[in-house]
């Protein structure tokens, strides 16, 4: 008994060590990926046609002195690699330079907007998961039932309807007609902020929920057809027990798709931000691209990439936690 117990402790410690190693390896890979990406993002400035210094001042009329001061400030006369390392050092300290359009630092400009987009994506993600996953499970459990058929039909509409159309419809019905939700702007922080985000979040969630519903349903149906379900039934396991067996297995593909959904959400809020006049990074990116506001474009690109990479990392860790087969491979 004692030896068995200590043996198990040992196994647990070993597997915990393996988890740490797994996370370290994945973090390093994520770091490397972002490093490569930062290089590409930096190179954007030099890939854009024309004089980098001129690109950094935008469309304003400039004196040679001003151009020179910009060259000095951004070390534009240094060799390319030195410029990059200098830029990277600043970025790591949260300094993306100054916006060309607004006379503020990129960091101040982004701070509030990143928060808004994160809030919007999180709310939308939560709505998607809360609605679509249980419905997908329920529909799979009763394949061919009225619920299944009506949800499957609704999900086709959900996937097909364009975001701005759904947004305008929601605005009209709940904002103007029933006058429940605000129709414009980002709110004054706190609860008001969230209240302003409800309609945009629903708009975003509608298409995604339809997709997640279908993915969940397919995953659960596939598991229900597995031999282990028939075997569990034949042994007299209760419906509850069988459901837990199935859900634990179906969770693996669903979790992966949810990771993708979040990454997609964070980078795909632009249409909704424009429709609802929200001050998020999507609308900022659109404007910055139009005005060739390169420092802002660089910052947003890198930020979005970081969020996506971290989400992928989170999914990997989740995988590790729920699938013993991945755990085993990770240890070897």
């Amino acid at each position: 008994m004692d030896t068995a117990h200590s043996h198990r402790r040992l196994t647990q410690l070993l597997s915990r060590g393996a988890l740490t190693r797994f996370i370290i390896v994945r973090l390093a890979a994520t770091g490397l990926l972002l490093l490569v990406l930062s290089f590409v993002v930096f190179a954007l400035l030099h890939l854009t046609p024309g004089d980098p210094a001129r690109n950094l001042v935008g469309v304003r009329n400039v004196t040679p002195e001003l151009l020179q001061s910009i060259r000095d400030k951004y070390h534009l006369n240094d060799p390319f690699m030195n410029q990059y390392l200098h830029w990277l050092g600043n970025v790591l300290h949260g300094d993306f330079g100054e916006s060309i359009r607004n006379n503020t630092t990129v960091t101040t400009l982004l701070a509030d907007r990143v928060m808004l987009t994160l809030q919007l994506s999180s709310l939308s993600f939560a709505l998607t998961v809360i609605v679509a996953v249980p419905l997908g499970i329920a529909a799979a459990w009763r394949t061919g039932s009225a619920l299944d058929r009506s949800m499957s039909a609704a999900s086709i509409v959900g996937v097909g309807a364009p975001t701005y159309a759904v947004g305008l419809l929601l605005l009209y019905v709940f904002g103007l007609w029933f006058n429940i939700f605000p129709v414009y702007g980002s709110g004054d922080g706190g609860f008001d902020r969230w209240w302003h985000l409800v309609l945009p979040a629903i708009t975003l969630a509608s298409g995604l929920a339809a997709m997640v519903f279908k993915l969940t349903r397919t995953a659960v149906v596939a598991e229900l057809n597995q031999d282990y379900v028939a075997f569990a039934q034949s042994r007299g396991l209760t419906r509850r027990q069988i459901r837990s067996l199935v859900l634990r297995n179906a969770m693996i593909p669903v979790a992966t798709s949810l990771g993708l959904v979040f990454a997609f959400l964070f980078g795909g809020t632009i249409l909704v931000e424009v429709t609802f006049a929200l001050q998020g990074i999507g609308s900022l990116l659109a404007g910055s691209v139009t005005f060739k506001d390169l420092p802002v474009v660089q910052a947003i690109t890198l930020l979005t990439a970081t969020v996506i990479a971290l989400t992928a990392l989170a999914v990997d860790i989740l995988y590790y936690a729920v699938d013993p087969r991945v755990r085993k491979r990770g240890m070897q």
Partner: peptide, 30 residues
């Protein structure tokens, strides 16, 4: 009747057990 009176053992042991549950747990589930 299933389980206590009549039980079925399937052909393929590679698919008749849940891949993500421990064997002990699957044996005693009933």
């Amino acid at each position: 009747l299933r389980g206590q009176y009549i039980s079925l053992l399937l052909q393929n042991p590679f698919t008749s057990l849940s891949p993500v549950h421990r064997c002990g747990e699957q044996i005693t589930a009933a």
